[in-house]
Deep mutational scan, measured.
Amino acid sequence: DDVELRDGDWRVELKDADEEILRAVEEAIKNGASEQELRELAERLIR
């Protein structure tokens, strides 16, 4: 699993992620995405 989400800690570690993925995830976090939404976003972007 390349995506690590810690309970109560919104730092997201994406291994080997490019800047576009990181920006998309950071934007989702700023917009108040839930953990499930972040997982789905990350899975779509990593593929």
Score class of each variant (00 low, 15 high):
Glu27Ser: 06
Asp9Ala: 10
Arg23Asn: 08
Leu45Ile: 04
Ile29Ser: 14
Gln36Ser: 11
Leu41Glu: 01
Glu19Lys: 08
Leu14Ser: 01
Arg39Met: 08
Val3Arg: 10
Asp7Tyr: 07
Asp16Tyr: 15
Leu5Phe: 15
Glu35Gln: 02
Val25Arg: 00
Ala28Phe: 05
Arg39Ser: 04
Ile21Tyr: 03
Asp2Pro: 12
Glu4Met: 11
Asp1Val: 10
Asn31Phe: 06
Glu40Arg: 04
Val12Pro: 05
Arg23Ala: 12
Leu14Asn: 02
Glu20Asp: 10
Leu38Phe: 03
Lys15Gly: 05
Val25Gly: 00
Asp1Glu: 14
Ala17Ser: 03
Glu37Ile: 03
Leu22Val: 13
Glu40Leu: 09
Arg11Trp: 14
Asp2Ala: 12
Glu13Arg: 09
Glu40Asn: 05
Ser34Trp: 01
Ala33Ile: 11
Ser34Pro: 01
Lys30Pro: 00
Glu37Thr: 06
Ala17Asn: 03
Leu45Gly: 01
Arg47Thr: 15
Ile46Trp: 03
Arg39Glu: 03
Glu37Gly: 02
Arg44Glu: 11
Ala33Lys: 05
Arg23Phe: 07
Asn31Leu: 10
Glu27Pro: 00
Ala42Thr: 09
Glu35His: 09
Ala17Lys: 05
Glu27Tyr: 03
Gly32Pro: 00
Asp9Tyr: 08
Glu4Cys: 13
Asp1Ala: 12
Asp9Thr: 06
Leu5Tyr: 10
Glu27Thr: 05
Glu26Phe: 10
Glu43Ser: 06
Ile21Trp: 05
Asp9Val: 06
Asp18Tyr: 11
Asp1Trp: 15
Val3Asp: 12
Ala28His: 03
Ala24Asn: 03
Glu13Thr: 12
Glu43Arg: 12
Asp1Gln: 13
Gly8Trp: 15
Leu5Thr: 10
Arg23Pro: 00
Ser34Met: 03
Arg47His: 15
Arg39Ile: 08
Ala42Met: 14
Leu14Arg: 01
Arg44His: 07
Glu4Gly: 12
Ile29Thr: 06
Ala17Ile: 10
Val25Met: 13
Ile29Tyr: 15
Val12Lys: 10
Glu19Pro: 14
Glu37Leu: 03
Glu4Asn: 10
Ile29Gln: 13
Asp18Val: 11
Ala17Cys: 03
Ile46Gly: 03
Glu19Thr: 06
Ile21Asn: 01
Gly32Gln: 01
Glu27Cys: 09
Val3Pro: 01
Leu38Trp: 15
Ala17Gln: 09
Ile21Gln: 02
Ile46Phe: 11
Arg47Ala: 11
Gln36Pro: 00
Lys15Asp: 05
Leu14Pro: 02
Ala33Phe: 12
Leu45Phe: 03
Ala33Gly: 02
Arg39Lys: 14
Asp7His: 04
Glu40Gly: 03
Arg47Pro: 09
Glu40Gln: 09
Glu35Tyr: 07
Val3Thr: 13
Asp18Met: 03
Ala28Ile: 02
Gln36Met: 14
Ala42Ser: 05
Leu38Gln: 03
Arg6Trp: 15
Val12Ile: 08
Glu27Asn: 13
Glu35Gly: 06
Glu20Ala: 13
Glu4Tyr: 07
Glu13Lys: 15
Arg11Cys: 14
Glu4Leu: 11
Arg11Pro: 04
Leu14Met: 06
Arg11Asp: 04
Glu35Ala: 09
Val25Ile: 14
Ala28Leu: 06
Arg44Asn: 07
Glu4Thr: 07
Gln36Trp: 12
Glu37Arg: 01
Asp18Trp: 09
Glu43Val: 08
Ser34Asp: 07
Leu38Thr: 03
Ala24Asp: 02
Arg6Cys: 11
Val12Leu: 13
Gln36Lys: 10
Glu26Met: 12
Val25Asn: 00
Gly32Leu: 01
Ala42Val: 15
Lys15Pro: 01
Ala33Thr: 04
Asp7Gln: 07
Arg11Tyr: 13
Glu4Lys: 08
Asn31Tyr: 03
Leu41His: 00
Arg44Cys: 11
Ile29Met: 14
Gly8Ala: 11
Ile46Lys: 07
Val3Asn: 14
Glu26Asn: 03
Glu35Pro: 06
Glu35Cys: 04
Glu13Leu: 15
Asn31Cys: 00
Asp7Met: 05
Lys30Val: 07
Ala24Ile: 15
Asn31Glu: 06
Glu35Asn: 06
Leu45His: 02
Ala24Pro: 00
Glu19Trp: 13
Glu20Arg: 13
Gly32Val: 00
Leu38Arg: 02
Glu40Ser: 05
Asp18Gly: 14
Glu4Ser: 12
Glu19Asp: 12
Ala33Trp: 15
Ile21Ala: 03
Glu13Asn: 15
Asp1Leu: 13
Gln36Thr: 08
Gly32Tyr: 01
Glu40Thr: 05
Gly32Asn: 05
Asp18Asn: 02
Trp10Thr: 02
Asp2Gly: 08
Glu35Arg: 04
Leu45Ala: 02
Asp7Ala: 07
Leu45Asn: 01
Arg44Thr: 06
Glu19Arg: 09
Glu40Tyr: 05
Glu35Trp: 05
Asp18His: 11
Leu45Ser: 01
Glu4Arg: 01
Ala42Ile: 15
Asp16Glu: 06
Arg23Asp: 03
Arg23His: 06
Asp16Gly: 12
Asp9Gln: 12
Asn31Met: 13
Leu5Gly: 10
Leu14Cys: 04
Leu5Ser: 08
Glu4Asp: 11
Lys30Glu: 05
Glu27Gly: 03
Ala24Val: 14
Lys15Val: 13
Asp9Arg: 05
Asp9Trp: 15
Arg44Val: 09
Glu26Lys: 09
Asp9Ile: 10
Leu38Asp: 00
Gly32Ile: 01
Glu13Tyr: 15
Ala17Phe: 14
Arg39Asn: 03
Glu13Cys: 15
Asp18Pro: 15
Glu40Asp: 10
Leu38His: 00
Arg39Thr: 03
Asp9Lys: 08
Gly8Ser: 13
Ala33Ser: 05
Lys30Asp: 04
Glu43Asp: 07
Glu35Leu: 11
Glu27Leu: 13
Gln36Tyr: 12
Arg23Val: 04
Glu19Asn: 07
Leu14His: 02
Val3Cys: 14
Asp1Ser: 14
Leu41Ile: 06
Val3Ala: 07
Gln36Leu: 08
Arg11Ile: 07
Arg44Ala: 12
Lys30Arg: 12
Asp18Lys: 10
Arg47Met: 15
Leu22Gln: 08
Asp18Thr: 12
Leu38Lys: 00
Asp7Ser: 04
Ala24Leu: 12
Ile46Cys: 06
Ile21Asp: 01
Gln36Val: 12
Ile21Thr: 09
Leu38Met: 04
Asp2Leu: 13
Ile21Pro: 00
Asn31Gly: 08
Leu38Ser: 03
Leu5Arg: 04
Leu41Asp: 00
Glu20Ile: 09
Ala33His: 05
Arg6Ala: 12
Glu37His: 05
Arg44Leu: 08
Ala24Ser: 07
Val25Ser: 00
Arg11Leu: 10
Ala33Leu: 14
Val3Phe: 11
Gln36Glu: 11
Asp7Val: 08
Ala28Glu: 01
